[in-house]
Design a protein around this nucleic acid. Structure first.
Length: 228
DNA sequence: ACCCAGGGTCATA
DNA sequence: TATGACCATGGG
């Protein structure tokens, strides 16, 4: 499959260019989960402020956060935006985690069941669930985000806005060995590359050159892939 | 003043 | 199934 070669090559290019990213930027699995909710459609710099507030208030712990009122929790996470919605989502997550007997208890669950259960928590969608599975539980689940969609589209690997999250996820998971480290770095590298070099604006001069290689050329960087 | 950022839910047709 | 409205702060 040509797509397989393209995705493997893309990883090599990104890894060579940027090196390991050491994700997720958090100290505990619980902090990963909190960050995954807070970063929904939100710049990470804003999430950092919210996380800092939670840590200073000593609330970056399941049982302590669970006890907070939504209003008080919302106050602490204000810099992350959507604070009322996210306070409710964090509480939903805390209640569910607590009901399952804590995070340790979940480590023995099969990935598929864990994913299904996470998706049943109101406020946890596909990407947030997969962030948690990969970065908190180290399961070989590939995370798809807007950066990934955009990059795949620019590389010509998908049509327009490939709607289905699961289709795109399957594309990566079929192409790659199910190694958590690989999935971890790959997603982090796509985010790093997209934020730093291939932002929306910097792609205005894009060219896709037919030939032996597909070539993305954004003023700042080049990513080459095997053709077709 | 505008655009956007590591989404997700809900109401409607 | 598929759009659209809504949530909201902070940096460019």
């Amino acid at each position: 499959m040509a797509t397989t070669i393209a995705l493997v090559t893309l990883y090599q290019r990104l890894y060579d260019a940027y090196g390991p990213q050491h994700w997720w930027p958090a100290e505990t699995p619980f902090e990963v989960m909190v960050g995954a909710v807070l970063t929904q459609n939100t710049a990470w710099t804003n999430v950092e402020k919210a996380i800092s507030n939670l840590q200073k208030a000593d609330k970056m712990k399941l049982e302590l956060m669970k006890k907070l009122t939504e209003r008080r929790l919302a106050r602490l996470i204000r810099p992350a935006g959507y604070f009322n919605v996210k306070a409710r989502r964090l509480k939903n997550l805390c209640c569910w985690l607590s009901k399952q007997g804590g995070i340790e208890e979940l480590s023995s669950w099969p990935s598929e069941e864990l994913r299904t259960a996470l998706l049943e928590v109101n406020g946890i969608g596909p990407e947030t669930a997969d962030d948690i599975l990969l970065y908190a539980f180290e399961r070989p689940v590939f995370v798809i985000d807007t950066y990934t969609r955009r990059l795949m589209k620019r590389l010509g690997l998908i049509e327009e806005e490939e709607k289905k999250y699961e289709v795109l996820r399957a594309l990566f998971e079929r192409a790659l060995d199910p190694e958590p480290y690989l999935f971890n770095e790959y997603h982090a590298l796509i985010v790093r590359h997209s934020k730093e070099k291939c932002s929306r604006e910097s792609m205005t001069g894009r060219r896709v050159i037919p030939g032996s290689n597909m070539l993305i050329d954004c003023r700042h960087c080049k990513v080459e892939l095997p053709f077709e």
